[in-house]
């Protein structure tokens, strides 16, 4: 359980650790890549609202 790992955590120390990680290039890249991937998934969900039935039929090569 996640709660067991954060019990009595030193929040001031945590803030420093977050700051160091976020300033490192790997931390920044990790977040930016994850946001970009999430945005791409959502974009696919948004695209699903637009429908071209004619194109659908053409895609099946019988």
């Amino acid at each position: 359980m996640l709660s067991a790992h954060v019990k009595d955590i030193d929040l001031e120390k945590l803030e420093k650790e977050i700051g160091q990680w976020a300033k490192s290039s790997s931390g920044r890249d990790t977040i930016q890549n994850a946001i970009r991937e999430a945005t791409e998934v959502v974009e696919k969900f948004r695209e699903a609202r637009f429908i071209d039935q004619k194109k659908l039929h053409e895609q099946v090569t019988l």
Partner: peptide, 17 residues
């Protein structure tokens, strides 16, 4: 879970993050 939420709150103070 207040303790978990407080860690998120602490993170909001770190502007670089």
């Amino acid at each position: 879970d207040k303790e978990l939420a407080n860690t998120i709150r602490a993170a909001t103070k770190v502007s670089s993050f």
